[in-house]
Design a protein around this nucleic acid. Sequence first.
DNA 1: GTCTATAGCATGATAGAC
DNA 2: GTCTATCATGCTATAGAC
Lengths: 228, 228
Amino acid sequence: MISDYQSFTADLQLSKEDICRELYRQNTDMIRVKKEATAIRSLARIIDSTLRLANTKGFHAMTLRDLCADSELSMGGLYAYIRNKDDLIHLIQTHGFILTRRTLLHYTGAVTMPREKLYEAIKAHLFLSELMRAWFYFSYMEAKSLPEDEKQRAITMEREIEGIFCGILEAGISNGDYRSDNPRLLSSLIKALLQDWYLKRRKYRDQQVDIDTYATTILNLIENHLIP
Amino acid sequence: MISDYQSFTADLQLSKEDICRELYRQNTDMIRVKKEATAIRSLARIIDSTLRLANTKGFHAMTLRDLCADSELSMGGLYAYIRNKDDLIHLIQTHGFILTRRTLLHYTGAVTMPREKLYEAIKAHLFLSELMRAWFYFSYMEAKSLPEDEKQRAITMEREIEGIFCGILEAGISNGDYRSDNPRLLSSLIKALLQDWYLKRRKYRDQQVDIDTYATTILNLIENHLIP
DNA sequence: GTCTATAGCATGATAGAC
DNA sequence: GTCTATCATGCTATAGAC
């Protein structure tokens, strides 16, 4: 169970290194660097820089020269890790998918009561998107210009997440916690609210709304609607 | 007062031509075509094509050759209307601002009771974004890569809209219609829900949720929260 | 007022030295 | 394993014919 954002951050051994190791091993075909240690270090830098630059000017507007400058690699060096610009997208998306799937399932799997579970799912998604804001932002903003296979992967992931929320609402309706309503529509609305947190992060910072307040506000909004 | 989407569409004389005429007259410095009638016709085509292409592949990825092909102008012809690619953004943004401001003020100005006014504002925004979906989508997605002055204009417009909703909620709280709460945060959440309608249009089409249902769902969500 | 042709430049990608 | 140097492409923007 998650108590608040502080404890979540401590809990989740974010260990970017672990994920980069997995990334490296999954992509030995396109990565031509054989020494794992250096490869992992470079991959982390490449992903980091790409996310930063792409989120500022857009992925297409970001040139590979920009990326090389920011990640402190040469053009030749970069091309040891990717075959072309689209491979960058693949690396980044895979990296985010692994972490998101792992985290959401872990935290919602630990609870069974619908109301409690809804709160856990909201917090897990929100907190994760806070920690990985750059990835969530990238993934949302570049979705429309992804290569076709990546687009499909992204849609599947989206459905999976909305399915989690929808399942919780359905369970709550059938066990009488919630009144009868359209769970699919409501889970879409919850998702929209969760997304606004990382899409319009600055707005909430200006309003001095903190993440725990945001989580409870969403929960209250939904519960006041579903519990007469 | 707006009754439903059908009547709204009929009401609003969308007359793109009127707006293009205004656009033309406001931008005689950069438009080198002197015959108003042809200029207006071309402007409408240019804006239309730009929105379509930019929303598919992104504004930066859209080349001016793409645009010329789609709008049936030559490169030289196009450059009679703009000085550079950024001028396209200016045209499009101005065009949307004029229409949005005009519509929202018109429909919310006609009502005074907060609860009624909230419903009108939700409908006006939602219906407008449905009619002008391409513009709203463009404006949201390209916001981060706008030239600095355009970015400021966009932020001002955003604030104006959120201010309208916030004002309504505050009025409702102080006249006792709503219980006391954080109106600024709530108006941000309302905005997020309104945005999801045009950002994820396909999702709601797949769910077979129509626009009038969406409007009442948002209203109910907020009222169930604010009216105990 | 609109066209075709082209200048000038920045980009993605590669070859080959170290 | 990483670098510098270079190629081919495709872009924005303009010049000049009609």
